[in-house]
Amino acid sequence: MALESKGSYKPFDLTDYWSSPNLHPFFIKKEDELIGFALVESATEIEPNAILEFFIVRKYAGKGYGKMAAYEIFTLFPGKWFVTQIEKNYPAQAFWRSTISKFTGGMFSERYDENRKSIQEFDTNLLV
């Protein structure tokens, strides 16, 4: 997700989300209020499930709504998962590390790629 010069978020091209069976947009709501969104790519024969974008508005950040939404998404798409965060987004890294650790009972791996992205990987099929 990129910010534009005036501080607003650059719009996403969601066209493929309405036609591809592997792309899934989700709104995250608290009662009737929209508090975030998630863009997910479900697994194919060669690629694992992936969180492509995930956002909770600041007012609700740190209150557990993101964690609950992530748990629901992980449950909706069983199997292997791949979650990445950019190098300097330390709050996102901490959120995903904690959320995935609690969801998997610590059964995940973490590494950095050549671009210094933090990557967590796990398989819901291996969880008891």
Rank of each mutant, 00 (worst) to 15 (best):
K59D: 15
G66F: 11
V40Y: 11
K59F: 09
I119K: 07
A50D: 03
S20F: 01
T84V: 08
K10W: 00
I51R: 01
T124R: 11
E31H: 06
S8L: 11
S8H: 07
I51G: 06
W81R: 04
I100Q: 05
Y17H: 10
S5A: 14
G7V: 08
A61W: 03
F103V: 04
W81Q: 06
L52N: 11
I73L: 15
E41F: 00
F12R: 13
K29T: 14
P91W: 03
F37R: 09
Y17F: 15
F26T: 00
N49T: 01
Y112N: 12
N125S: 10
P25E: 01
V57P: 05
L34G: 02
P21M: 03
G62D: 13
F55R: 04
N89C: 10
E41N: 04
F74A: 02
E4D: 08
I51S: 05
F27Y: 11
F108I: 04
D113Y: 05
M107I: 07
F103C: 07
S98N: 15
D113H: 04
T15P: 01
I100E: 07
K10A: 13
T99C: 15
S20N: 15
E114H: 10
S109V: 12
A38G: 07
A50F: 00
A61V: 12
T99G: 02
H24S: 01
H24T: 03
F37T: 08
A61K: 13
G64E: 06
K30I: 02
R58K: 15
D16H: 07
A38M: 09
F54E: 05
K6D: 15
T99E: 06
F82Y: 15
E110S: 11
P21T: 08
I73G: 03
W18E: 12
L76S: 12
L3P: 00
E47W: 09
T99L: 12
K59L: 09
R111A: 04
Q120A: 12
A92R: 05
F95R: 09
K102H: 12
W81Y: 08
N22M: 07
S20Y: 03
A2C: 00
F108Y: 15
K30A: 11
T15I: 03
K67M: 11
K6Y: 05
W18H: 10
S19K: 13
P25D: 04
T99D: 02
K6P: 00
Y9G: 02
S8R: 11
A92M: 05
P21F: 01
T44Q: 07
E121V: 13
Y17G: 06
F26C: 04
P78R: 06
S42A: 12
S20D: 15
G62R: 12
P48D: 10
D16G: 03
N22W: 03
Q120M: 11
F95K: 04
D13L: 02
M107S: 13
T75H: 12
G62L: 09
T15W: 00
I46E: 13
I100Y: 06
K80Q: 14
Y90I: 15
P91F: 03
S42R: 14
F82C: 02
L3G: 00
N125L: 14
